[in-house]
Amino acid sequence: MTSRNPRPRPLTDAPFLIGDRVRGTTYVPPDPYRHEQPERFEGVVVQVGSGYAGVDADRTLLWVRLADHTERQALVSETELLS
C-alpha cells in the first residue's frame, strides 16, 4: 500500500514546519529609513522564529524561500499554509 502524501504532517502545536508551502505578506520592520513595502509571496518555510529565546515574544516570524531562491521574512499571523 502506498501513501498519497509522501510526507505526512506530524502532530504538533507549531503553525508551520520546515518545508511547508505557504502564502502571505512579507514583514517590513518599522524604520523611517526603509524603502521596502510589504509584498505578497508564496514559497517554502526554511526557518520558524529567530532561534533565540524571548526574541519573538511580541511577534513570531518565519523565513520563506521563494522560487527565485531569495528569502523573505513574514509574520506567522499573516501567513497561511497551502495544501
Rank of each mutant, 00 (worst) to 15 (best):
Q37H: 07
R23L: 05
E78M: 11
N5E: 15
D20W: 09
D20E: 07
F41V: 01
R4T: 02
T70S: 14
S3Y: 10
Y27R: 08
M1P: 08
Y33N: 15
D20R: 04
L11V: 12
E80M: 00
T70C: 12
G49A: 09
A57K: 13
R9Y: 04
F41Q: 01
D13M: 13
S50M: 07
V46R: 13
R34F: 06
I18N: 04
D56F: 06
E42Y: 11
H35V: 00
T26H: 03
Q47D: 06
R59C: 10
L62T: 05
V22N: 04
V45Q: 09
W63V: 14
P29S: 05
T26P: 03
Y33D: 14
S50V: 02
V48E: 00
R59Q: 05
L81C: 06
P32R: 03
S50R: 09
T2L: 09
Q73K: 14
T60F: 10
A57N: 09
P10R: 04
V76H: 02
G24F: 09
R9A: 05
P32K: 01
D20V: 09
Y27V: 00
R21P: 02
R65M: 15
F41I: 06
E42T: 09
G51H: 06
R65E: 11
A53F: 13
S77D: 14
T60D: 08
T12E: 04
E71M: 15
P32C: 03
T70K: 10
D13F: 15
Q73S: 13
H35A: 00
E36D: 12
R40P: 10
L17P: 01
T70G: 12
L61N: 01
S83I: 02
A14T: 11
S77Q: 15
V48W: 03
P10E: 01
L61M: 15
G51V: 04
V28P: 05
T70H: 15
R4F: 11
L61W: 07
Q37G: 05
A53I: 08
T70D: 10
E78K: 14
G54T: 10
R9F: 02
T26S: 13
T26G: 09
E39W: 02
G54P: 07
L17G: 06
R23Y: 07
L11A: 15
M1L: 12
R59I: 11
Q47C: 09
T2P: 10
L82R: 03
V22L: 08
A57G: 10
V46P: 02
D68G: 09
A14S: 13
V55K: 12
V76W: 03
T70E: 13
G54S: 11
L11G: 06
L17I: 06
V46H: 13
